[in-house]
Design a protein around this nucleic acid. Structure first.
Lengths: 154, 154
DNA sequence: CGATATAAGACTAAAAACATCTTATATATC
DNA sequence: GATATATAAGATGTTTTTAGTCTTATATCG
C-alpha cells in the first residue's frame, strides 16, 4: 500500500520542470541527474506524462521535456495517476461471492470513502503551491547563477 | 497502492468471527471455507492477528480462533495494520538528498495528510457497525438452522 | 549527412506477494 | 498414556509486480 518508485519519480520530474516554468525545455539528462532518477527509467515515465498531456517531448539533438500546463494547473493526483493509473486502494474487500459486484457492502463503502478522500487530497495539491511553500527544494539553478552545471558539460 | 490479499483475508476472518461474537471458538477450517481463504494462508494471518491481541488461538483437537474483543472495539485499521504493518503511503517523496530527512518538504506534507486521513477513516469503522449495516453479508449460519455444515463433518 | 538526443518496447533482475508444505506441538478423547 | 486431530512456525516454491537496462528506430540540429 505504497506509492511505487515510478510514481515518485514522476513527481520529481514534474517538480523539476515546474521550477523552470511552463514551456521551458529541459533535457532528460539534466532532469535525471538533478532528481536522481535512472535516465532510461525517466524516459518511460516521461512518455506516460506526455500521453496524459502533462508534458511535451521534443526529440532530436538538444531535445528534452517541457511542461504543457502551468504548474498551478498540475496536481499531484494527475501526475501520479498518469503513471500508476487510477488510484484504487482495494479491489474488493469482503467475500467475493457475496460482495464482488455489490457496492452495498459496508466494508466496501469504507474503502470507497477512503479512496475518494485520498484522491481529493492529492488533487488539492498543485505544483505551483508546492514549490512556493517549499523551503527545502529551492536551490538556485546553474543557469541563473552562471553556467557550470551538467547542462553544457563540455 | 492497494491493499494486499493478506490484508483483505484478515478482514474477512475477523468479519466472520465477529458474526459469531466475542469469545466464540470457530475452527480455522470453517473460517477458511466460509471466507474463501487458503487454510494455510489463514493460519499465518491468524498468527498476526493473535500477536496484535485481536484474536486468541486455541491449539489441539477441536481448536480454532476466537475474538478477544467485542466487535465494536475492533477497527478496520487495527486489523489491517496487524497484518501489513502501519500504513505508509509514501516512504519519502521528493529528492532524497534534500528531503529525505525533512518533514518540511511540501510534497511530503501532502502525503502525510493523506496518510492520516486514510488511517482515520479506517479507524472509524468498527466491525459491529460494519456487520449491522451490511445487507449483503448477513446469511444465516448452519448452527442456527440445524447442523449440517462443515463444522462437524462426520 | 553525421552527431546527438529521445522513442518505443523488448528484455532482465530483484523484490514482493501469494500460496503451500513440512515438521513440531498442543489438546481432546478413548 | 496413546492416538487422532488441529494449529504453530517457518521453510520453501511460485507467480506477479516493480525496477531498471538494453537495443533498435526515429527525430532534429548543425
Amino acid at each position: 500500500m505504497r506509492l511505487t518508485r515510478a510514481g515518485e519519480y514522476g513527481i520529481r520530474c514534474v517538480q523539476h520542470l515546474a521550477r523552470h516554468g511552463k514551456g521551458t525545455l529541459v533535457s532528460r539528462k539534466e532532469i535525471a541527474v538533478r532528481t536522481d532518477v535512472p535516465p532510461h527509467f525517466l524516459a518511460k515515465i516521461a512518455q506516460q506524462l506526455a500521453r496524459a498531456g502533462i508534458i511535451e517531448i521534443q526529440q532530436g539533438a538538444n531535445g528534452g521535456y517541457r511542461l504543457l500546463r502551468d504548474p498551478s494547473e498540475i496536481t499531484l493526483l494527475a501526475v501520479i495517476e498518469a503513471i500508476i493509473g487510477e488510484i484504487s486502494l482495494n479491489d474488493c474487500v469482503g467475500r467475493p461471492e457475496s460482495c464482488h459486484n455489490s457496492p452495498l457492502c459496508t466494508v466496501h463503502r469504507v474503502w470507497n470513502k477512503a479512496n475518494q478522500q485520498l484522491r481529493a487530497t492529492l488533487q488539492e495539491a498543485d505544483f505551483a503551491t508546492l514549490a512556493k511553500e517549499d523551503p527545502c527544494c529551492l536551490t538556485p539553478f546553474p543557469e541563473t547563477a552562471g553556467h557550470n552545471g551538467p547542462i553544457g558539460k563540455k
